[in-house]
Every structure is written in structure tokens, then in C-alpha cells.
Amino acid sequence: MGRIALSQMRSGQRGKIVELATHDRTILRKLRSLGIIPGVSVRLLRSIPDTVIEIGHTKVALDRRYAALIMVSSKN
């Protein structure tokens, strides 16, 4: 179990969101509207050309700059 940014995960890897590393309210709310909040499990589906994650039953496409703010504890 390591703590890494979502942008550092490998495709197919699962993890649990532990922290959103920003205080920018607009970004926090945007992420929240997509269900990206601490405690939720995610799976990285794709990192090229940009990040795609699966969260619950939803697929979400994200800019890498956002993915870098999402800290996860990863399982292998």
C-alpha cells in the first residue's frame, strides 16, 4: 500500500482516494460533481492521451493536471 497521485498509477491499477491535494474550491467542487472524493475506490483505465478512470459505475475523463491532485492509496 503506497500513497501516490492518480497520475502515477498504471492502467488497470485500483486504489482508494485518500486526499485531494488542493484548496481551490472550484477544483474541489468540480471533482466532487464527478464523484471524486476521499474514501471512494477508483480504477485507472487509461493514461494516454489523457486520464480515464472508473469510479463506481461511471467513467470519467480528466486532464493530467487534475489527476496529479488526486492522491490514492494503491493496491497492486
Binding site: K30, L34, D50, V52, T58, K59, V60, D63
Partner: peptide
Amino acid sequence: VPFFLELPP
């Protein structure tokens, strides 16, 4: 502005 979007099925 960075991109974010839900991908519906």
C-alpha cells in the same frame, strides 16, 4: 482550463 468530462456508456 483543464479538461474534465463524464463519459456516459
